[in-house]
């Protein structure tokens, strides 16, 4: 067998991103098994990992983990390129944009809970936007906005608390040395 002539050096960051993304994908898939009353309202447990990565390793890696999760989880669930996939992508992009701004809030006053709630609002805004422009071209969809907003506050708070708990208590060994 000949050795490959191309070399892809794997950095510590690559391994770290892969591990976090794997955890986020697992959470997303586990979440898909939870029955929910309204399409579009779900806890978004995978975002807990995004928040942890954001706090530990910064926005760039958080963006990698969030987008890898959206792509890989949709492939596993058979949703890739289905309408729900585009809703997830637009939600993830907008919430990453929100997080890019929110991470500069003073740390002393604003923790993962703030990041989580703000990102959750970004997420449902992105979804509503795509849904309104493409899937349901009628203002009737805005009737659901208060429900989504309430879900964003509740699940955003819970996810933020879990992320904060993990940041304080779990020994997050994500370097390849272990």
């Amino acid at each position: 067998m000949t050795r490959s002539t191309t070399e892809l050096p794997v950095t510590n960051a690559d391994v770290r991103i892969a591990r976090y993304a794997a955890a986020a994908i697992a959470l997303s898939i586990a979440e898909a098994a939870i029955p929910l009353p309204l399409p579009g309202v779900k806890p978004g447990l995978g975002n807990i990992i995004t928040l942890v990565v954001l706090a530990r390793w910064g926005w760039r890696e958080a963006a990698w983990v969030a987008l890898l999760r959206v792509f890989a989880a949709s492939l596993v669930l058979g949703q890739f390129l289905a309408p729900g996939f585009f809703l997830s992508v637009s939600g993830a992009l907008i919430s990453l944009g929100v997080l890019a701004l929110a991470q500069h809030l003073p740390k002393r006053w604003f923790g993962p809970v703030s990041h989580s709630v703000l990102a959750a609002f970004g997420h449902f805004s992105g979804q509503i936007l795509i849904a309104r422009l493409w899937l349901v071209p009628h203002d009737g969809i805005f009737y659901l906005v208060p429900v989504f907003a309430l879900a964003a506050v509740v699940f955003g708070t819970v996810n933020g608390l879990v992320a904060d708990y993990l940041l304080r208590h779990a020994s997050l060994r994500a370097t390849p040395s272990d």
Binding site: L105, P106, R108, W109, F110, G111, P112, V113, S114, V117, L118, F121, A149, A152, V153, G156, T157, G160, L161, D164, Y165, R168
Partner: peptide
């Protein structure tokens, strides 16, 4: 869990 809340977080949740 309560330790996860910072003063600004309460503000954000209230705003939400």
């Amino acid at each position: 869990w309560r330790a996860g809340f910072r003063p600004g977080d309460i503000l954000v949740i209230g705003g939400g």
